[in-house]
């Protein structure tokens, strides 16, 4: 019997820290750093505080009503007798409560409307436009520019300048996905055959995690991305690095890796700008090593995780459209050396 109790205690102790996971600020709407998210968060706290206050008042009034002793006159009075003084008091109290309720509801509706205006106020003021396309299970990001030679495509990592409104156009290649960066803004769906848009404005530099918020298939959970808010000079520097074509491989191993990359399955799906590899099906790998993660946020980027991912994608992300390409160990090492050098 004591063993059973010990087990229960063990489970309780082990599961207690699970309650703390909600405090992680890595991806949380309670950790707002964007204009939209801050407006929504203010409204959330306001609504919650006001509703809690009203709930307490109602509960106190109810407890008061239950505990109140009736006076002798009340107890002796005939049930249907009209007594003017308490009646008048009740009329005033109920009318005031109805008036307050209406005023609070109108006030909250107005507040909600004003929050909507704040969210919409970014529209038309954007200094940067992105086209984000959802795929099972990764994000393609196209930086648009009126100068064609300043446009480029990347994947799974979005850099934006701090304090600048950014327009994100959302499309999908297969099923419905949803673009959600809780620290910056709300959710917006990516719908096949239809273009949606959402506006982001980061107030502080930082790395904010985003996640697909609409179940989209087997690896929905592994469809995340990062939004990196940089100071404007850092952003411009990043952008000019991304616009450039891929660096030539340095060293014998990386050069061999490039030959494997171009002659085997890799180049059928992936683009590396500046080489003949021009596949449009998978993520653009021109500067893949400059990103922080591999496989849409599944693994942190390192040589090891690149090797693991290329060696057997189905073991890491079952169902992903990246196939296992039969490479012998030397070829695998060479390809990893080449890809890890694509800064």
């Amino acid at each position: 019997m004591s063993g059973r109790a010990g087990n229960v205690r063990f489970v309780l102790v082990v599961s207690a820290p699970l309650g703390l996971t909600a405090c992680n600020v890595w991806q949380s709407a309670l950790d707002a750093h964007g204009q939209s998210a801050e407006a929504v968060l203010r409204q959330f706290y306001g609504f919650t505080a006001l509703s809690a206050g009203i709930w307490l008042l109602v509960i106190f009034a109810m407890i008061g009503a239950l505990r109140r002793r009736r006076s002798l006159a009340e107890r002796l009075a005939a049930p249907l007798e009209r007594r003017s003084r308490p009646e008048a008091f009740a009329t005033i109290a109920v009318s005031t409560a109805i008036g307050l309720t209406a005023a609070i509801l109108i006030g909250l509706t107005t507040w909600s409307f004003m929050t909507g205006r704040t969210l919409a106020s970014l529209r038309g003021r954007e200094t940067l436009t992105l086209l984000v396309t959802g795929d099972q299970w990764w994000w393609q990001v196209r930086y648009e520019d009126s100068q064609a030679n300043r446009t480029f495509t990347t994947a799974n990592e979005i850099h934006i300048p701090v304090g600048q409104p950014v327009k994100v156009k959302l499309e999908s290649n297969d099923v419905i996905h949803s673009f959600w960066v809780p620290s910056l803004a709300g959710k917006e769906d990516l719908i096949p055959g239809h273009q949606n848009e959402i506006y982001l404005k980061a107030e502080r530099p930082g790395v904010y995690r985003g996640q697909c918020a609409e179940f989209c298939g087997y690896q929905h959970a592994h469809m995340s991305f990062l939004v990196v808010a940089d100071e404007i000079p850092d952003f411009e520097a990043w952008r000019s690095r991304q616009v450039a074509t891929a660096a030539s491989p340095t060293g014998e191993e990386a050069a061999a890796g490039q030959r494997v990359f171009l002659s085997r399955g890799c180049s059928i799906c992936h683009t590396v700008r500046g080489t003949p590899a021009g596949g449009k099906v998978g993520p653009d790998l021109t500067h893949v090593a400059s990103r922080k993660t591999v496989a849409a946020g599944t693994l942190p980027l390192s040589r090891g995780s690149l090797a693991a991912w290329i060696a057997d994608p189905q073991a890491i992300k079952p169902g992903t459209n990246m196939p296992r390409v039969a490479l012998d160990p030397d070829e695998l090492n060479a390809v990893v050396a080449y890809v890890a050098g694509l800064q």
């Binding site: 002659s263 085997r264 399955g265 059928i268 196939p323 296992r324 390409v325 039969a326």
Partner: peptide
């Protein structure tokens, strides 16, 4: 051959 894996 070699460009598309066999299963595909």
């Amino acid at each position: 051959r070699g460009k598309i894996p066999d299963d595909q």
